[in-house]
């Protein structure tokens, strides 16, 4: 565990808790893509199946359990409790366009052809693109609420910090996992445009809105 990974994990935790808190506090999930949240739920469930087979540390187990629980709670709030506020007309990205190719790729390019490993790979690939429905929704409506922007910033920062963590681990531990690194870089690149808008607008106290 190095500082980059720890701060990355905490940023990840902050992101998902922030989103859950926002929905709960405002009693509304307007502007939030339920499809991105379903895919993140799928990411955590397929990746953390090793909770049942492999113990790494208390930290690792606790974080995994929290991620799964928060993801399920968020999906529940969007699709059940606050369903009336869910902006489905703007959440039109087709999930199968991501899930099917990502599933195919996980079968073809993985570390080991076993069920658990293919599911882990699937989750890594899916995570890299799971935010697309959310970004697509923002591009459709042309704006995002400030808390949603903070959520995206924390989530993007987590992956960017993981890249630094991988550089550190490569140099100091000789560790590298090509699948995670490539997917992590793709994921981070998807946030770049958003990072730019966040720094130029949200950090200056303005709401995130896209140029017409």
């Amino acid at each position: 565990m190095n500082i980059f990974r720890l701060v990355g994990d905490l940023s990840h935790l902050l992101a998902i808790l922030l989103l859950l808190w926002k929905i709960w506090k405002t009693r509304s999930c307007a502007g939030v893509s339920g499809k991105s949240q379903i895919m993140f739920g799928l990411v955590y469930i397929t990746r953390y199946l090793d909770l049942f087979t492999n113990f790494i540390s208390i930290y690792n187990t606790t974080m995994k359990a929290i991620f799964i629980a928060v993801a399920i709670a968020t999906i529940y709030l969007i699709y059940f409790k606050f369903k009336a506020t869910y902006d489905s007309n703007h959440d039109t990205f087709r999930m199968e366009f991501l899930i099917v190719p990502v599933g195919g790729l996980a079968f073809l390019v993985n570390h080991d052809f076993t069920a658990l490993e293919i599911l882990w790979t699937f989750s890594i690939y899916l995570e890299s693109v799971a935010i697309l429905p959310q970004l697509f929704m923002i591009s459709k409506t042309g704006e995002a609420e400030t808390i949603t922007s903070h959520y995206l910033f924390a989530l993007g920062s987590y992956r960017a910090l993981y890249i630094v963590n991988w550089v550190y681990r490569y140099y100091f531990e000789g560790f590298f996992d090509l699948i995670a690194i490539v997917a992590g870089c793709v994921q981070t690149i998807l946030y770049c445009d958003f990072f730019y808008l966040y720094v130029t607008k949200v950090m200056h106290g303005k709401k995130l809105s896209l140029p017409a």
Partner: peptide, 10 residues
């Protein structure tokens, strides 16, 4: 490397 793959990262 062969054998069990340890995914210690989240």
């Amino acid at each position: 490397e062969e054998g069990d793959i340890d995914h210690d990262e989240l």
